[in-house]
Simulated scan of single mutants.
Amino acid sequence: MNLTRLFPLACLAVLGLASCSKNSDTSKLEVRMTDAPGDFHQVVLDVRQIEVHLKEEQAKDGWKNLSFTPQTLNILEYVNGKSALLVKQDFAPGDLKEIRLVLGPDSYVIGRDDQRYDLKTPSGQTSGVKLKLDKTTLRDGETYQLLLDFDVAKSVVERGTWRPGNDRKERYLLKPVVRVITQEVRGGLSGTVAPAAARPQVLAIRSTILGPDTVSTSADASGAFQMGALPAGTYRVEFFPSTTAPTGQPAYRNVTRTGVVVTNDNVTNMGSIPLN
């Protein structure tokens, strides 16, 4: 995925898929959102507008609105290889410099205590959450997909001054952390865990010159997990059970697999991973 950007508010990814088109001077642009999970029942984003900045654009400051219908998204529904399609439209070939999300005032989380807490992102509601794109060129006849990989665990931050009994609206801040992935990134990981009841969080960690690059997901109710849009490389994959084993059964344990190789255009199947 790989250009990694942390934003002053708080995983987005980019995949390139070639497709045929009979129209000259026309490409297609898709914008999707997926999620790295966090410790909440729901994380709902109020997305009002999506824009891209064109390097050669002569219009006002270079920003162009995309054909997007304002909506709220519970991004925890889009894990384990799932993604929400936000934009799909014809687009003139050329370079893209940035993508920007403008958020409304109605973002919120439902915590593990089943309470609703408002999420405030002042800069995201005014100037927008800006995500830099590197070497992003739409070419004639291609479909280009921007996958916004939102990292919930890093993006939703509890106020240091919050105490139980305070106004629930003031507990959390939204400081989006989003991963951006270059066009050539098309690797993946998959596998299953046993027992499925352990429901682990799964981390894939790759060392880079900028530091560790970490992607996360969670195994589903059947024990399956999948990660897409991974850069080629060698990974350390860690499994952290989110539940405890029933009385009388072997305890669930954390498991680490090293030397897991990911290559472009392939999904590396890790097979079955025992967690007890």
Rank of each mutant, 00 (worst) to 15 (best):
T126Y: 09
T121E: 15
L146F: 07
V156A: 03
G188L: 09
D95L: 01
I181H: 10
L203G: 04
T136R: 06
I205V: 13
A92I: 14
A197R: 01
E184W: 05
Q145K: 01
L203C: 05
V202F: 05
R171V: 00
F91L: 03
L96E: 14
L119G: 01
D113Y: 09
G104N: 07
D90Q: 08
L174P: 08
Y117V: 02
P93H: 08
T161H: 07
L133K: 01
G187V: 10
R186P: 02
V152I: 11
G141L: 02
S107T: 04
V156D: 02
T137Y: 11
P122D: 14
T161D: 14
A84D: 01
I110A: 10
L131W: 10
D95F: 02
R139N: 11
V193C: 13
A92L: 12
R199N: 12
L103M: 07
K88P: 00
I99K: 00
T136Q: 05
T136Y: 14
G191K: 06
S190P: 01
A194Y: 11
Y117I: 00
L133N: 03
S127R: 13
Q201G: 13
P200L: 03
R112I: 00
V178R: 03
R112S: 01
R139P: 00
A92T: 12
R112H: 03
A84P: 01
A204S: 11
S190D: 02
G165F: 05
S107I: 02
I205D: 07
A198T: 04
R116W: 05
G188D: 01
V185I: 05
K175A: 12
I110H: 10
T182I: 08
D95C: 00
T143P: 07
R186Y: 08
K120R: 15
K175V: 11
R199M: 07
P93E: 13
V193T: 10
K175C: 11
A197Q: 11
F91S: 00
P195V: 06
F150M: 12
S123V: 12
L86G: 03
T192V: 07
I181S: 07
V109S: 04
K88M: 02
G141M: 07
S127T: 10
F150H: 12
Q145I: 13
K130M: 06
L101H: 10
P164E: 05
V87N: 12
L147C: 00
G104D: 11
S190K: 15
K154A: 06
S107D: 02
R199V: 08
I181K: 06
R163W: 08
I181W: 09
V109H: 06
R100T: 06
L131H: 05
I181Q: 11
D151N: 15
